[in-house]
Design a protein around this nucleic acid. Sequence first.
DNA 1: TTGGGTCAGATTGTCAACAATCTTGACTCT
DNA 2: AGAGTCAAGATTGTTGACAATCTGACCCAA
Lengths: 227, 227
Amino acid sequence: MPEDQETTAAAGRSPSSEVIAQALKDRVLSGGYAPGQRLIEMELAEEFGVGRGRVREAFRTLVGEGLLAFVANRGVMVRRFTREEMLSIGRTREVLEGLAARLAAERELTAEEQAALSDCQARMDRAVAADDVEEFNRENRSYHALIAQFAGNELILDFLDRARVPLMRLQLPPGAAAESMPRSNRHHHAITTAILTGMPDAAEAAMRAHVRRGNQHIAELPDEDFQ
Amino acid sequence: MPEDQETTAAAGRSPSSEVIAQALKDRVLSGGYAPGQRLIEMELAEEFGVGRGRVREAFRTLVGEGLLAFVANRGVMVRRFTREEMLSIGRTREVLEGLAARLAAERELTAEEQAALSDCQARMDRAVAADDVEEFNRENRSYHALIAQFAGNELILDFLDRARVPLMRLQLPPGAAAESMPRSNRHHHAITTAILTGMPDAAEAAMRAHVRRGNQHIAELPDEDFQ
DNA sequence: TTGGGTCAGATTGTCAACAATCTTGACTCT
DNA sequence: AGAGTCAAGATTGTTGACAATCTGACCCAA
C-alpha cells in the first residue's frame, strides 16, 4: 500500500504517538483492519517512520479505549466480538443514542444545525426513493453522528464511538439492508421531527426503538457472520 | 509514603505495565492522587522498580481510559472536571445506571443474587436508622456496583466505571449527604422492589430518577468544590 | 517596580540495542 | 503416521543513554 505510506508517513515529519493512535483508530473504525487481526509493532514503526516505542504507546492508548485487545508477549490485535457481546453492546448503544436524541431535542439548535439535519434527512429520502442502499448507509452514518454531535456531550461521543466498533465488522449499519431501508427511514422521520420540534421524550423513545430494531437484525444473522 | 513503597514495589518482582496501570488507577479512584496532580515518570519508575518506559505505557492506558489527561512535553495529570463536564457525565450515568437496573430486572436473578441485593438494602436501612452517613455511602456504592454486575453486560460495567470517576473527586456519592439520605434510600427501595419483582420499566425509571436527583445535588454545590 | 531575557535544572521524547518469549518447521524416534 | 524435541527466526519486553522541551529563578535595564 504505497499511497497509504505517502499520506501517513511522508506528510508531517515524524508523527507523534497521538497521531499514530488516531490513524490506527481510523483504520479500525473504518474496517481497514479486520477483527482479530494482529498488529505488528515493527511494521507500523517502519510505515510511520518512527521507533517501536511510539507505536507501543499508541497501542496502549487504544487498548485503554477498548479498540484493541492486548495479550502478554503476543502484542495487540483488533478486538473481536461474539454475537452475545454485540447484542450487549447494542443494548448499550440503544440508551446512549436515545440520550443523544433527547439532548439534541432539549437544546436550542442553531439554524445551521437544523438545516444540516433536514438536509441529511432529505438525502436519505432521496436514497430510499432511488433504492440506493450504499448512499443510504453513508447518510445514515452521518445522521447518527450529527445527532450525537448536537447533543453536546463529549462522553456520549466517546462511548458511542466505542459502541459502534463491532458494527464495522458487519460492513453496514444494522437494519439498513435493502428490505428494511424504508422502515428505517420512517423511524428517522419520527426522530427528526421530534428533535426539530423540541420533544425530548419523543426523540429518545423513537431513537431507542429505532436502534432496538437494528439490534434485532443482528440477532437474526447467521452464525457464519461471526466466524 | 514508605509503607506504600512496600506494598507496591517489594511484592512481586518487577510489576508489568498492566499491574502498574491498575495500581495507579486504584490510587486515582480512591483519592490517593488529587485531581490536577501531575504524575512524574521517574518518581513512579523508581517506586515500582522499573524503567520509565513501563510507566509511560501505563500512563497511556489510563489516558485511553479517561482517568489521566495528557499534555505534550508536560506529561500526564489526574484528570480534572468542570461542573459542566460533571453534569454531562452525570446525564450519561443516568441512562447507563437505568439500563443496568432494567437488565437486572429482566434477568432471572439467582437466589444468591437476590439475597445479596436484599442484604445490601437491609444494611442501608440500618445505616439510615442509625444516621450513619459513612456506612450508608459505602453500602450505596456496593448497591450500585451490585446492580451493574447483575446486568451481565461487560460494556456497561466499563462505561459506568468511567462515568463514576468524577464522583470520586467529591469523596461521597452525590445525593448521599446527611439530609438527603432518607430520600435516597426511599429511591433504593423502589429500585430494589422493581428488580426483585421483575419489572424492567419500573426499575429503569426509578433508577434514572434516582441518579437524576443526585446530579441535581452536584448542580447546587458551591463553586469552591470545583476549584 | 516591571518587563523581558537567559540560563540551569527538571522532565519528557526518542531510539537503538539487547533480553525474553513465542512460533514454526524440521527432525527423530517409536 | 504420530508424537515429542529442538533449534532458528520472528516478535515482544525492557532498559539506559542522549536529545528536546519546559519551568522557574535570577539578573538587568527601562
